[in-house]
Amino acid sequence: MTTATGLADARLRKKAKREGILQQAWTRRADYLYVLPAILVMLVVIAYPIYYTVDLSFFNTPPGLQLRDKVFVGLNNYVVILGSDVVWRVTVNTVIWTFFSTVFSFALGLGSALALHRDFAGRGVMRAILIIPWVVSAVAASYIWKWIYHSDFGVIGAVLVGLGLAAHPPNFIDSVSTVLPSLIVVNVWREFPFAMIMLMAGLQTVPEQLLRAAKVDGASAWQRFWHVTFPHLRGVSTVTILLLAVSNFNSFIIPWIMTGGGPSNASHIWITHIYELAFGRQRWGIASAYSVLLFLILMSLGYFYVRALSSGDRKERGA
């Protein structure tokens, strides 16, 4: 029932709420001071280059002109990129690369984490060995894998031919159809320890009583994993998968060093294609527009990441 006092109350409450936000900001001003140095660094190192890139994306940079004399073309760079066959091809590559790298890294990481969860003789040694791919320099690893895969003199080829299992060495990275899967293998090899460590931490927190309850309820080891352990790992898994996905989208070293995007653009992903356009072909405008598009896509992934991280907080607040 809206009485005079009722209305007045409502207005008071609204005023309190608005003041609330400003009031909150003021009472929390010390918090802002603490993050100010970091924000300043970010402005210089991240925000300004982003602004500059967006600005550059509306220009063309012909080889005969200095950069300061660049030509304004409006949205034309974006139109060119979105309508290009090559970009379409590279997009398909990127999706395949990211999806399979993420899925397999996660699966392998999960398997390793589960295997290492139970205590057994030599567990410490196994753990150390399994972390090595992640810790080794990516560049060094890329070169070594390149030689392992080498179409004429690689180790794999030598072993297979030596054992009589193949007539000649298999073609891993010099073939349009096998290059991307071969690189994905290297990427998964490199990345799964990260997933393994995240999930190992998560496994430590699975409630013992729940596993016992499931055992009493008649669940087999696999069912206990599926109904108790895995759902409990959902938070950690979400974060891990998102981090893996973002890292894979940006994964530059392995494809660039091993194949340079070849052969015939079969192993180009967005990030290497942008690099080639910018630094190999001096197409700064197009590369900038391309980067902006990549940035937007990664930002949306980042949004989901932040959401996943703060879902716990939201639950607490009763959201």
């Binding site: 080889p63 070849g262 015939s264 072909r281």
Partner: peptide, 23 residues
């Protein structure tokens, strides 16, 4: 001409790779 690096380092090898891989 200033376009030469791009032509020689990108277009020509691309042409070779396209033909040699059968693409």
């Amino acid at each position: 001409i200033p376009e030469t690096p791009e032509i020689m380092n990108i277009v020509v090898p691309d042409m070779l790779q396209n033909a040699l891989t059968g693409t």
